[in-house]
């Protein structure tokens, strides 16, 4: 296959590629071996350490450990993320609509609010919710996530609306729909479909950001890892880290695949097709830091 950087390889290049491939493999294996050795020197592969998940010490059962991680921990993560996602999506639609209002008196302040929310760290917003507004920890976490992500969702939806062919709104005005009817029955549904991959990858970001609750003391998955190591001993940190990372990666990976699947499947229902998650940035809309930055 020809690509931007190289042509279809001939026999000599193929041989060279094969050699470099082996060198690359040795390099990667070398790194892995070094990591393995370092861990081994600290007895991290000792089966006794991993038994904390099958036959834990200190009178606990394996079920207790897994329950604290998957039910209590992941459950708390999912609950905060779920509620925040619903609020953020609703508020995001509202902000997008207000921002596109014909009146400057509405659109300008909305733009300012969106820019402010987007420019602040989520953990600071969570902290503000708990300390300054006096929300319980759970709602502080939801507040931070919802405020930040509503601004991001608003920008994604707006970019979606702007990217639709002009004929869509022209046609709906022509058949006599009002401005609001056009927005809600013609433009927004298509914008949502078109931006579905971006919306889903932002939901993954939202889920990841739930972990910021760890910092302000919300008992989510990562906090559960910590309480477990406090109970069983610091020597189990690596084991709990590996399991915690595996849980997060499995959940997020599934969601990311869903975004890719939707992107590939495309849909004919949105004029102009579905925008790729990483290309949802529409030049010239001054949607600064929209998709690309927001995914980080």
């Amino acid at each position: 296959m020809s690509s931007i950087l190289y042509d279809v390889a001939g026999p000599r290049t193929r041989r060279r590629t094969a050699i470099w491939s082996i060198v690359g493999a040795l390099f990667v294996l070398g790194l892995l071996y070094l990591a393995y050795r370092q861990l081994d020197s600290r007895d991290q592969w000792d089966p006794e350490r991993w038994q904390v998940f099958t036959d834990p010490p200190m009178g606990q059962t394996a079920e207790d450990v897994w329950r604290s991680l998957l039910v209590t921990g992941l459950g708390a993560t999912a609950r905060a993320a779920g509620i925040a996602a619903v609020i953020a999506l609703t508020a995001g639609v509202l902000l997008a609509v207000l921002r596109m209002s014909a009146s400057r008196w509405v659109s300008w302040p909305t733009t300012t609010v969106i820019e402010f929310f987007r420019g602040l760290p989520v953990v600071l917003l969570m902290f503000f919710g708990v300390i300054a507004i006096g929300l319980p920890i759970f709602w502080g976490v939801v507040f931070g996530l919802a405020v930040y992500n509503s601004a991001i969702f608003a920008e994604i939806l707006r970019a979606g609306i702007v990217s639709l062919p002009k004929g869509q709104s022209e046609a709906s005005y022509a058949i006599g729909l009002s401005r609001w009817q056009t927005l809600f029955t013609v433009l927004l549904p298509q914008a949502v479909r078109r931006m579905l991959p971006s919306l889903i990858s932002q939901l993954v970001v939202l889920l990841k950001d739930t972990s910021l609750g760890f910092i302000i003391g919300y008992a989510e998955l990562l906090r559960r890892l910590q309480t477990n190591t406090q109970f069983f001993g610091q020597r189990y940190w690596f084991q709990f880290f590996v399991v915690g990372a595996a849980i997060y990666i499995a959940v997020n990976f599934t969601l990311s695949r869903l975004a890719v699947y939707l992107e590939k499947r495309g849909t004919k229902k949105a004029a102009g097709g579905v925008a790729r998650a990483d290309q949802a940035q529409i030049p010239g809309t001054t949607a600064t830091g929209m998709a690309g930055g927001a995914d980080v």
Binding site: L5, Y6, A9, T13, T17, W20, S21, I22, G24, A25, F27, V28, V204, K208, D209, T210, S211, L212, F214, I215, L222, L225, Q226, F241, G244, A245, Y248, I249, N252, F253, S256
Partner: peptide
């Protein structure tokens, strides 16, 4: 790069890190 092993390494790194929360990396 045209070298498959390096491409896989890059892909694996990106996929793992992107799906891990920053807080966990700090931990």
């Amino acid at each position: 790069s045209p070298v498959p092993t390096l491409r896989w390494f890059g892909t694996a790194y990106v996929e793992i890190v992107r799906n891990t929360p920053l807080t966990l990396v700090f931990i």
